[in-house]
Amino acid sequence: MSFIKITEQPSLYDDLENKSVDELLTDINREDQKVALAVEKAIPQIEKLVSQIIPRMQQGGRIFYMGAGTSGRLGVLDASEIPPTFGMPNTLVIGLIAGGDKALRNPVEKAEDDMEAGWKELQAYDINEKDTVIGIAASGTTPYVIGALREARKHGILTASISSNPDSPLSQEADIAIEIIVGPEFVTGSSRMKSGTGQKMVLNMITTSTMIKLGRVKGNRMVNMQLSNAKLVDRGTRMIMDELGLDYEQAQRLLLLHGSVKKAVDAYKADR
């Protein structure tokens, strides 16, 4: 039986150019509401993945995202948000996109069609069995991603896939296949829409839950966030005020002295 791409099936809506702006927005929103439900169905697979990532990262392992186009950009985006949010080095969650950083802003022709490029890029990072490679491709057919997962798996590295088509070629290459079946896109084939939204949700779930279990969150707060702007310094100051019962000036002085909420609180308590 031939592989059918749900992501390429005709939209449930037609004559889009004749719809009012209100109708367009309402219909897009109606479709978007299906995404969270599709992600919910994949929670068992996401849990399986996160449960295997945590012990690997505790031993110094890393997460590598591999993708092309929208999928690649979302992987790079999630990876780039880990250092400021959780105070982790930028070497622990790494996003690789077909065509390199240039492809973040401009399409690079045929880059995603190179079956060998992804694995070559991973080798440059001295990838090993403590690491995890997560391939992202709405279609589930992107050669750049498939090739990377195939080789990684051959080398005993944990692999996972995130796609929007069931039983795709990409799923066949992954130890853990996460399939977010969101249905046809509002604009036929435009997987930057529901598929992209679903991918972003899953990536948030993977890294956020992993970072929490690695001790980068206390209670419900980002106690290891980087103090990279005034807003974050203010947020950290208020966290310390709540935790230690200090006034604003005392809390801010302590925060700036130690560089993070966690270090500031630990140091203050150690002196008592």
Rank of each mutant, 00 (worst) to 15 (best):
228 S>E: 01
205 M>G: 12
207 T>M: 01
174 A>N: 04
182 V>N: 00
142 T>G: 00
181 I>V: 14
165 N>A: 12
136 I>A: 12
141 T>P: 06
209 S>F: 14
219 G>V: 00
203 L>C: 12
194 K>H: 15
183 G>R: 05
190 S>P: 03
192 R>T: 11
137 A>T: 06
228 S>A: 06
212 I>H: 09
194 K>T: 15
170 L>I: 11
195 S>C: 00
152 A>L: 06
229 N>G: 12
198 G>L: 03
183 G>I: 05
232 L>I: 03
139 S>N: 03
171 S>N: 03
166 P>H: 11
140 G>T: 01
134 I>E: 04
218 K>E: 12
200 K>Q: 08
149 L>Y: 13
180 I>S: 09
144 Y>Q: 04
171 S>V: 07
135 G>M: 04
158 L>C: 12
204 N>P: 07
202 V>F: 14
212 I>C: 10
178 I>W: 01
199 Q>W: 08
158 L>H: 13
153 R>S: 15
173 E>V: 07
158 L>K: 04
189 G>I: 06
214 L>I: 05
230 A>T: 02
213 K>D: 12
146 I>L: 04
209 S>M: 01
213 K>H: 15
172 Q>C: 12
204 N>V: 03
206 I>W: 03
149 L>V: 10
200 K>D: 07
183 G>W: 07
197 T>I: 05
217 V>H: 10
135 G>H: 11
193 M>Q: 10
189 G>P: 07
203 L>E: 01
178 I>R: 01
166 P>F: 14
182 V>I: 07
163 S>N: 02
196 G>A: 00
139 S>H: 02
229 N>W: 06
162 I>F: 12
212 I>M: 02
142 T>F: 08
151 E>N: 12
147 G>H: 01
225 M>A: 15
176 I>L: 11
146 I>G: 13
223 V>F: 13
160 A>F: 11
168 S>K: 09
215 G>L: 02
184 P>S: 14
152 A>D: 04
190 S>Y: 03
206 I>N: 04
162 I>D: 00
185 E>L: 14
143 P>G: 15
171 S>F: 11
158 L>M: 07
168 S>N: 08
180 I>N: 02
157 I>F: 14
222 M>I: 05
147 G>L: 03
192 R>C: 13
188 T>E: 04
174 A>L: 06
162 I>Q: 02
159 T>E: 03
202 V>M: 08
137 A>N: 02
165 N>Q: 01
180 I>P: 03
179 E>K: 09
229 N>Q: 02
149 L>R: 07
146 I>R: 04
169 P>V: 09
172 Q>M: 11
208 T>G: 11
182 V>A: 13
184 P>V: 15
232 L>R: 02
172 Q>H: 15
191 S>E: 00
155 H>C: 10
209 S>E: 01
215 G>A: 08
146 I>F: 13
225 M>S: 10
169 P>E: 02
159 T>M: 04
155 H>I: 05
140 G>L: 01
197 T>F: 08
183 G>D: 05
207 T>H: 08
148 A>M: 05
138 A>G: 09
153 R>Q: 14
202 V>G: 15
143 P>F: 15
154 K>C: 13
222 M>W: 08
139 S>R: 07
141 T>E: 03
154 K>G: 13
189 G>N: 07
160 A>M: 04
213 K>R: 15
173 E>R: 05
220 N>Q: 09
158 L>Q: 00
136 I>L: 05
165 N>T: 08
166 P>W: 08
